[in-house]
């Protein structure tokens, strides 16, 4: 066997050791994380199937941001196992990064640069050699082509969020993480973003993980939800089951509030 083919098969074997063929886009088992003296996550276990739009709810300090930071390889868990797209985040973070897109909360982007210049940078960092054709494709998909050569500094919060989504999906990730995506948007911006999230899930088959504290957002956008309380998963179910169990939005809100109240 030629040396380069041998190397390829070794590399392929190494990758297969790190990946796990599974129906789950996200699997967390017994994950704990402590910052100095504050315990953020305590044995969190969570499974999200592929092609879901999952909404993680919780009050401030419940551990939502820590959960997303671990899933996106930004921080390492103290213990437990975490797989994203079937890949272990601590053993192969770089491989995980090639499979995910991430839009953090309150992203501003680079005001002095145009949409295209912003996206070109993230495209290059995502390993796209010639990102311009991908940029055109994504901007067309998001109905944002006419703003491609305008500076981001001229944009409203909703338009910036669209550029943020564009950078996150430029490399066609399998799993998209959105941290409080509707935060600070006006009602029209919220509606538009909700439609974008749904279409990314339906058209492109992306699994979407949303972090939010807005219950109304979750019930209108997600296919399943989880409620985080004191670093543990207090409740999880499909949105269909939730609406069957709690037929009106007020009832869901009561469930959320009662779970929150228990944690205080």
């Amino acid at each position: 066997m030629p040396a380069n083919i041998a190397n390829l098969s070794v590399a392929s074997e190494s990758i297969s050791n790190l990946t796990d063929m599974t129906n789950y886009a996200i699997e967390m088992t017994g994950v704990s994380k402590t910052y100095k003296t504050k315990r953020a996550l305590e044995g969190l276990s969570l499974k999200i199937q592929k092609n879901e739009i999952f909404g993680l709810l919780g009050h401030n300090g419940a551990g939502k941001t820590t959960t997303v930071s671990i899933l996106t390889t930004l921080i390492r868990p103290d213990s437990g196992s975490v797989n994203v797209a079937g890949i272990n985040v601590t053993k192969a973070p770089s491989l995980v990064r090639s499979k995910i897109g991430y839009l953090p909360e309150n992203v501003q982007l680079y005001n002095k640069l145009t949409t295209r210049e912003n996206l070109r940078f993230f495209g290059k960092l995502s390993g796209l050699r010639n990102p311009d054709s991908d940029i055109d494709r994504v901007l067309q998909y998001l109905d944002f082509t006419e703003n491609a050569d305008k500076r981001v500094g001229e944009f409203s919060k909703g338009m910036r969020q669209r550029v943020g989504i564009a950078q996150a999906i430029l490399h066609q990730p399998e799993v998209l993480f959105l941290d409080e995506p509707t935060s600070g948007l006006d009602p029209e911006g919220v509606w538009q973003l909700r439609e974008v999230i749904k279409s990314l899930n339906v058209d492109l088959g992306m699994t979407i993980f949303m972090n939010t504290h807005l219950l109304s957002e979750v019930t209108k956008t997600c296919t399943s939800i989880g409620i985080l309380r004191s670093g543990q998963l207090a409740y999880t179910n499909s949105i269909d089951a939730v609406t069957q169990e709690f037929p009106d939005e007020q009832a869901v809100e009561n469930l959320y509030l009662s779970l929150e109240a228990k944690s205080k």
Partner: peptide, 17 residues
């Protein structure tokens, strides 16, 4: 300061760098 002011650092650090 640029990436910190733009709140874009976490997006960069979840890419291939």
């Amino acid at each position: 300061l640029r990436d910190r002011q733009a709140h874009s650092l976490d997006m960069i650090l979840t890419r291939q760098i």
